[in-house]
Each structure stands twice: as structure tokens, then as C-alpha cells.
């Protein structure tokens, strides 16, 4: 069974973070919100499992 990964799992964290910020550069708040929504949906499809997705939602809510 796949579980939600909450330990470090990103190859090059600084680069990935920079990519994320770069994608939002120059966008209005509305455009950024739309981009984030598309991104979440694409990533959700990558995850596939409802169980893992719900675990991710829980982790996001807890902060």
C-alpha cells in the first residue's frame, strides 16, 4: 500500500521551490489561484489514491 510521504523526498529542493515561484511570477492573484488549482489537480491525478490524497489534505490542514 502506498502511503503519504512526509519525509524529505524532493531531489533538488531549492531548484524545485524556485521552479514553483517562477511559475507564478508576473501572474495576478486570480491567475495564480487558477494555476495552483490546475497544479493540484494534476498532482492529485499522479497520486490517484483517495486515501493518500486525504492523508495529504489532513497534513495540509494541520500545518
Amino acid at each position: 500500500m502506498t502511503r503519504l510521504v512526509l519525509s524529505p523526498n524532493i531531489d533538488a529542493p531549492d531548484n524545485l521551490y524556485a521552479d514553483l515561484l517562477a511559475a507564478h511570477e508576473g501572474l495576478s492573484e486570480t491567475e495564480s489561484a487558477a494555476l495552483n488549482a490546475r497544479l493540484i489537480l494534476i498532482l492529485a491525478n499522479q497520486i490517484g489514491s483517495r486515501e493518500v490524497f486525504r492523508a495529504a489534505l489532513d497534513a495540509a490542514r494541520r500545518r
Binding site: A33, A34, A37, R38, I40, L41, I42, N45
Partner: peptide
């Protein structure tokens, strides 16, 4: 925002 994102993605990506 999510609804429109789904519709936007559906044009190019089957998963949506």
C-alpha cells in the same frame, strides 16, 4: 476556481 481548472485541463488532458 477548481471547477474552471478542471474544465481548462479537460481540453488537453484526458485525466480531467
Amino acid at each position: 476556481i477548481f471547477r474552471d481548472a478542471v474544465l481548462d485541463l479537460s481540453e488537453r488532458h484526458e485525466f480531467a
